[in-house]
Amino acid sequence: MTQTRLDPTTFQPGAVVRVAACASMLVLAGTAAVLAALPFEGRFAPATGILVAVAVSAVMLDRIGAFHPHPRFGLGNAVTLARAGATAVFAGLALDPGLLASAAAGWAALGAAAVILAFDGVDGWLARRQELESAFGARFDMEVDALLILVLSALALGLGKAGPWVLAIGLMRYAFVGVGRLVPTLAAPLPASGRRRAVCALVIAVLALLLAPPLGPPVSTLLAAAALAALTASFAADVVWLLGAR
């Protein structure tokens, strides 16, 4: 999705950026508190989780002032930001998957992932209800989904639910963007697609399901392979459309 840069002479985003900054600080504080409460063996995993949360907030603050054409931050963006914080916690867990070795921890992680997935549809609904839809909000939501898929893919590998190839699920979006920088045709904007949204939700649901303690190979491997196949087919359809549109 393309983003139309706003004219700073007619739109003053300062108030929105300040609210977004306050929301970011709250999410960062909550993320840090959760990571500090988890019994990580070392400091690298929680530090990585905090770094992910900081990076997401920094990019969000850099973009919202120029691409959010509304005088309010909006509950939709707040929900997306909260999902980003939860994703950052999972990033820490992906580097120390041993914390999920017990059945109780595994089920708790599955429940948390299910909540993140459930709220994936809430942010867009809130934006529409408040009439605060924007290209920024849609892109922010999409990037948080992509990050969540990458983190859950890494966690599936760390838990032994699938082989190293499962990382292809999380890296595919970033590979597509990277190729688009080399092949401008593939960087062209894509039309809104229900198929794309459905596949994204399906992939997140499958990766979240892999957190279930009883689920292991070969069933978990087959489920991950099915998610990879669905995502590959979706990206292939987009590539075909972009080449045809040229």
Score class of each variant (00 low, 15 high):
Arg246Trp: 03
Leu223Arg: 02
Pro8Asn: 01
Gly106Val: 14
Ile204Ser: 04
Pro46Phe: 09
Leu126Val: 09
His70Leu: 08
Gly98Leu: 10
Val79Asp: 06
Ile64Asp: 01
Pro218Leu: 07
Ala236His: 13
Arg18Lys: 10
Leu100Pro: 06
Val177His: 08
Val52Gln: 11
Thr9Lys: 13
His70Ile: 00
Ala91Ser: 13
Ala58Gln: 09
Ala20Asp: 00
Phe44Arg: 10
Val203Lys: 06
Gly121Met: 10
Phe67Ser: 00
Leu202Val: 15
Trp125Thr: 15
Leu93Pro: 04
Thr10Met: 12
Pro217His: 02
Val203His: 09
Val203Trp: 04
Ala118Lys: 07
Ala15Trp: 09
Asp123Glu: 09
Lys161Arg: 15
Thr4Gly: 05
Ala104Ser: 13
Ile64Thr: 05
Leu75Gln: 00
Gly106Asp: 14
Ala175Gly: 15
Gly170Trp: 03
Ala108Tyr: 04
Leu99Pro: 02
Gly98Glu: 11
Ala55Gln: 07
Leu228His: 05
Ile64Pro: 07
Val17Ala: 14
Val59Pro: 08
Glu133Cys: 05
Thr31Pro: 03
Phe119Gln: 11
Leu222Gln: 12
Ala36Gln: 15
Ala237Cys: 03
Ala94Asp: 08
Ala37Met: 12
Asn77Cys: 10
Ala226Pro: 14
Ala212Asp: 02
Val240Asn: 10
Cys22Pro: 05
Ala212Asn: 06
Leu211Thr: 00
Gly106Arg: 12
Leu75Ala: 14
Leu38Asn: 08
Ala21Ser: 12
Ala66Leu: 12
Leu209Val: 11
Leu209Trp: 02
Ser102Phe: 05
Leu35Asn: 01
Phe11Glu: 09
Ala84Thr: 02
Leu6Lys: 09
Arg72Lys: 10
Gly30Pro: 10
Gly216Val: 00
Ala138Gln: 11
Leu186Phe: 06
Ala236Leu: 13
Ala33Ser: 12
Val17His: 01
Ile204Asp: 01
Ala103Phe: 05
Ala101Glu: 15
Val17Gly: 08
Ala20Pro: 07
Gly111Leu: 14
Ala20Arg: 04
Phe136Glu: 07
Asp123Gln: 00
